[in-house]
Simulated scan of single mutants.
Amino acid sequence: MAAPITADQWVAALRAEGVTDIVEMPGWRTHNRNGVGAWGDVHATMVHHTAGEGSGLADWCYNGNSDLPGPLCHDFLARTGRLYLVGNGRANHAGKVARNAYEAVLNEQSVHPAPGPDELDGNAVSYGMECENSGEAGRDWPKAQYDVAVRVQAARCRFHGWSANSIWAHKESTTRKPLDPRIDMDQFRRDVAERLAHSASWNPTDSTPEEEDMTPEERKLLTDTAAAVKRIEAGMTVKPWTYKGKGETRDAYAHLLDIGRGVKGLSATGLTPAQSDALAKKVADIIAARLQA
């Protein structure tokens, strides 16, 4: 269970995550739909596209219309990378969502299933970010916009102690929005997970001295090995486990046993024993250096 973040906490979390171009819309701190429906506890954070581009979108997200009053999201992200803070509390963004889709983010599952029938109130349990994009095939997300989108969702997850698997797209929550947004959400979650593996002040161009010492061949071996582990986990009978810092030792032990049974599959990488040993030593050295830092 997670109580919603406060307005002051949200601004601080964004700035800590490196989001600096922020517009606080007038009254956003108390702008919500709390009077007409539940808000919290929260368990997820959703990504949308606006399905249109141009000036006035921030106001549209704030005001909504007679059929769907605002706020229509918590945050609106322009193509320039400028973030508008729109609402704080319940917002009209998700609508009804599928139970299986909600349970996937609630349980931080790495696989997000095709949504079933709409059953639950998504507005009560999820934050929402609207990103300026037409939604047309081939329409890009500018680098600055995508970078801020990753930072915004990382800030939500970092504050609540969530993994990147607490992020979902509107298209993953309901069959009503099959293209919203038209980006690879698995890659998006991987990019957020990469941020969460570092401090909030980290930038993608940053690297540690240990990482710089790795040769291209060693980096490739590490990537290939990680891919092999992912294939092993995909075939496990026990779903991949994410540590939540709650002393869940028995669950962790079961997960490690399951990984152990699948380690034979690492031969699929084509690594020789000598290469595996060298790679393991390199990774161990990096971990040891970071623990001593």
Rank of each mutant, 00 (worst) to 15 (best):
A284P: 01
L14I: 05
Y127A: 14
P71K: 02
L85A: 02
A58R: 03
E119Q: 14
E130K: 10
K143D: 13
D224Q: 00
V152A: 03
I259Y: 06
W241Y: 03
R156H: 13
G95M: 04
V23D: 00
K264F: 10
H74I: 00
W162K: 06
S166A: 08
P69M: 04
F76H: 06
V192F: 07
A101R: 14
V86R: 01
E217D: 01
A78K: 11
G87K: 03
L256T: 11
T225D: 00
A7D: 11
N203G: 08
V125A: 10
I22R: 07
G54H: 06
H48L: 13
M185F: 09
F76L: 02
A169H: 01
D41S: 15
E108G: 06
A278Q: 04
T45W: 07
Q292N: 11
R158Q: 05
T50P: 14
R156T: 05
T45S: 12
Q9Y: 14
Y62L: 11
I259W: 01
D258L: 10
I286Y: 03
H48P: 06
K264V: 12
Y102G: 14
P117V: 12
E132A: 09
A268S: 12
M25N: 03
E233T: 02
L279Y: 02
P273K: 07
P69A: 04
D258H: 07
G116N: 03
L256E: 14
G54I: 10
M25S: 05
M236Q: 04
G128Q: 07
T205I: 11
Q153F: 10
T242E: 02
P115H: 04
T30A: 13
I22E: 06
P216E: 03
I183S: 03
A200S: 09
G27E: 00
C131W: 12
D191V: 13
T249H: 13
D224L: 00
P209D: 01
L57E: 08
R290A: 05
P142A: 06
I287Q: 06
A293W: 05
A44S: 11
N203R: 14
H112T: 08
L257N: 15
G52I: 09
V97N: 12
L222R: 07
R151F: 06
S267Q: 15
A2I: 01
W241Q: 00
M25G: 02
A155F: 15
K177H: 09
W202I: 00
A274P: 05
E108I: 13
P240K: 06
R29E: 08
V97I: 15
T45I: 12
A193R: 06
W28T: 04
V263P: 11
R79Y: 01
T50C: 07
D21S: 10
L271H: 12
D224C: 00
G95C: 05
Y62R: 05
T45A: 12
L222N: 04
G87S: 03
L14N: 08
R261F: 09
N32L: 07
R90W: 03
L68I: 11
D251I: 13
T249C: 15
P115Q: 08
A94H: 12
R176T: 08
N203L: 13
